[in-house]
Simulated scan of single mutants.
Amino acid sequence: MSLFADLSPFAVLAVWLIGANAAAVLAFAIDKSAARTGHRRISEFHLLQIALLGGTPGAYLARQMFRHKTRKEPFSSRLHTIAILHIAMLAGLAVFFLP
């Protein structure tokens, strides 16, 4: 029996998005700490993957909270592209599912 078997698809999506955004904030916090202390960093690829999997709002929040990767190119452009793709996807879903 699945943990999410009794939840609606929207509830599962909400749990996923909460987790992805929490993971994004945590990853940015860890990476900022590693940058300050000279330890092994989280790759930009992995930070962008977390954003792509639904953590874009958390990534933007963490960038501002920790002042991390705010001017870094092409990272910023790629994050903006992911955000635009997410907005387009949400708009498409809204058109498809709303009467």
Rank of each mutant, 00 (worst) to 15 (best):
A23K: 07
H39A: 09
R71P: 03
F10P: 03
R71Y: 06
F10V: 11
A23S: 15
P74C: 11
N21A: 08
G38Y: 05
A59E: 03
S76K: 13
P57K: 09
V25A: 11
L61R: 04
A88P: 00
F4P: 04
N21G: 10
P74L: 08
G54C: 08
A91T: 13
A22H: 06
D31P: 01
Q49H: 07
T81V: 13
G54I: 09
Y60W: 15
L26S: 12
H39K: 13
L17W: 02
Q49V: 10
M65L: 15
G92C: 05
A22Y: 13
L53T: 05
M65D: 06
P57H: 08
V95Y: 00
Y60T: 04
H39Y: 10
L61Q: 04
G58P: 01
A20Y: 01
R36M: 12
P99E: 11
I87R: 04
D31C: 02
G54F: 02
L98G: 11
G19M: 12
A11P: 04
A59N: 01
A51D: 03
L93M: 13
L90V: 14
V95P: 00
G54Q: 06
E73M: 09
I87M: 14
P74Q: 12
D6M: 11
L47F: 01
K32C: 06
K32Y: 05
I30F: 14
D31F: 01
Y60V: 06
S8F: 02
A59Y: 01
A24Y: 00
L53I: 07
T70Y: 02
L48I: 09
I87F: 07
V25Y: 13
A22S: 15
E44A: 06
L98D: 08
N21Y: 06
S77D: 14
G55E: 04
R67M: 07
A35I: 08
A29M: 14
F4C: 14
P99R: 10
M1W: 09
T81Y: 09
F97L: 15
S33R: 15
A51F: 00
P57N: 08
E44H: 06
N21W: 04
Y60P: 03
S76H: 13
G54E: 07
L90F: 13
L98M: 11
L79H: 03
V95E: 00
A62W: 12
